[in-house]
């Protein structure tokens, strides 16, 4: 694979509008790109023989509400080239007002559930996803819990259920009706 500065030149030429920058931390390159261009970038990384990242290892997201970033949310793709055992990270940045970006489902089927998970936990929408609905939380859940403005203990979702009492008798000696 190309080194960092050459990769920057190639990608800047190929994606003049979408490309933001490439950063490096502990030997791992991260390509930053604007959300709407991510599918084109992923397709290039998958099909171009210079990159040949044939395996999508994971999709997740980070909410940058309390941390510096290019926008509020970044959707993170971990790609793997299995021939050379090389990895790269793609970060697609989406704004809070319209958290929407194209789905990677046409390239890798594993994107299906992982994008549903990102949608459920962060509220980032994926266009052209075959079946975008909540996966972890129940359908009636109102919030997106992994956003930074949602409290750890929740907003009372866990306290509101039907209470069942013993229907006949009582089994503990301390309770009424047992000698």
């Amino acid at each position: 694979m190309l080194p960092k500065d050459q990769l920057t030149i190639v990608l800047r030429e190929k994606f003049p509008e979408g490309f933001i920058e490439i950063t490096e931390f502990r030997d791992m390159l991260t390509i930053h790109i604007r959300g709407e261009h991510v599918l084109k970038l992923l397709r290039t990384l998958k099909t171009d023989p210079r990159f040949a990242f044939n395996f999508l290892s994971g999709i997740t997201a980070v909410d940058h509400l309390e941390m510096e970033g290019h926008a509020r949310f970044s959707v993170v793709y971990h790609l793997l080239n299995q021939h050379e055992a090389r990895r790269i990270v793609v970060r697609a940045w989406v704004h809070e007002e319209e958290p929407r970006l194209p789905s990677a489902y046409p390239l890798w089927k594993t994107a299906d559930w992982q994008e549903r998970e990102v949608y459920d936990l962060f509220g980032v929408e994926f266009t052209d996803h075959p079946d975008l609905m909540r996966i972890m939380n129940p359908d009636y859940f109102e919030y997106h819990p992994l956003r930074k403005d949602y409290p750890l203990q929740g907003r009372g979702e866990r306290d509101n259920f039907k209470v069942v009492k013993r229907s006949i008798g009582s089994k503990w000696p301390s309770e009424k009706g047992f000698e």
């Binding site: 939380n137 750890l152 203990q153 929740g154 866990r158 306290d159 209470v163 089994k171 503990w172």
Partner: peptide, 16 residues
């Protein structure tokens, strides 16, 4: 102690 875990099932069903 998170948003999605019931804090003790005895809140809702009897436990012996």
């Amino acid at each position: 102690d998170t948003y999605s875990v019931i804090q003790g099932i005895d809140n809702f069903i009897p436990v012996d």
